[in-house]
Amino acid sequence: MEPLRIHQGLVVPLNRPNIDTDQIIPKQFLKRIERSGFGQFLFYNWRFDDQGNPRPDFPLNAPQYKGASILVAGENFGCGSSREHAPWAVQDFGFKVIIAPSYADIFKNNCVKNGILAIQANEEQVQIIMKKAETEGYTVTVNLEEQVVYDHDGFEFHFEIAPYPKEMLLNGWDEIGVTLTYEEKIKQYELSSIR
């Protein structure tokens, strides 16, 4: 995974609460065995009609949001089943940061494991970003080291993140990567147990 320290990106608003993992990645697309290739199916039932044509009224289909890397959404994002495919789809589509008032715990933890920063902001902050994101080309900068989100108009807020997930994201580590930081100690232990 790539380290995430400071990220500036185009924001796309998805002003809906309780977006569950079955809407993020519908069950019919869970047959893939690799972690890539899920982005094309992100929010599939909302992005496409029954014939597979893009719905023009869905934000991710709008030309002004092409290439967006920051998703702002309503409360309880990622609720539903614990499928890890949901953050895989979010990441594969190109999102590096999600901003929402609240998340399902399992989804938020799976985001960290897959290099996505899920920022919890209060409802007022989220609504400000939603409104600003309705204008074309709205970007924000996320500074994970300083734990701050800001734009070029003076809007700014600080966010909380626990030290362990922060370290994982800053270094681009998944759980295997964290384990490998102890590789020398593991080797020493293995050698000492052989004797």
Rank of each mutant, 00 (worst) to 15 (best):
E160G: 08
M130Y: 12
I129D: 00
V11K: 03
E134D: 10
E190N: 15
L14K: 05
P87T: 06
I194C: 11
H158Y: 10
C79M: 07
E167V: 09
Q125N: 11
N143E: 06
A86R: 05
Q147T: 08
T181F: 08
I128Y: 12
Y138K: 04
N109R: 11
L4A: 02
R32Y: 09
D57K: 13
F93L: 09
G9F: 06
K185P: 00
F157Q: 11
I19Y: 01
G67A: 11
C111I: 05
Q64I: 10
K187A: 10
D57I: 10
E34P: 04
D50S: 15
T141V: 13
F95Y: 10
C79T: 09
G9S: 08
G52K: 14
L71V: 02
L117Q: 03
I25T: 11
S69M: 04
N61G: 09
D153T: 15
A121N: 02
Y150K: 15
L169W: 01
V140Y: 01
H7I: 04
N15P: 03
L144C: 03
I129L: 10
G52A: 10
M130N: 12
V126S: 07
T181A: 07
M1A: 12
A104T: 04
Q91W: 06
L71A: 05
S192H: 12
N114R: 13
P63A: 13
A86Y: 01
K132D: 03
P87W: 01
L71D: 00
P13M: 07
N61A: 07
V72I: 11
Y164F: 15
V140A: 03
N53H: 15
L14C: 08
L191I: 07
V97H: 03
K96V: 05
K31E: 07
A68Q: 08
V11W: 01
I161D: 00
T141I: 09
N15M: 13
S36Q: 15
S192G: 08
L180F: 09
N122H: 09
P163Y: 06
L14G: 01
Q28H: 13
F48T: 13
T21K: 08
I194V: 14
G154P: 06
L180P: 00
V148L: 08
R32L: 12
F38V: 14
F77R: 13
Y150W: 11
I129C: 04
F95W: 07
N171W: 02
L10M: 09
G177N: 08
I19C: 01
C111K: 05
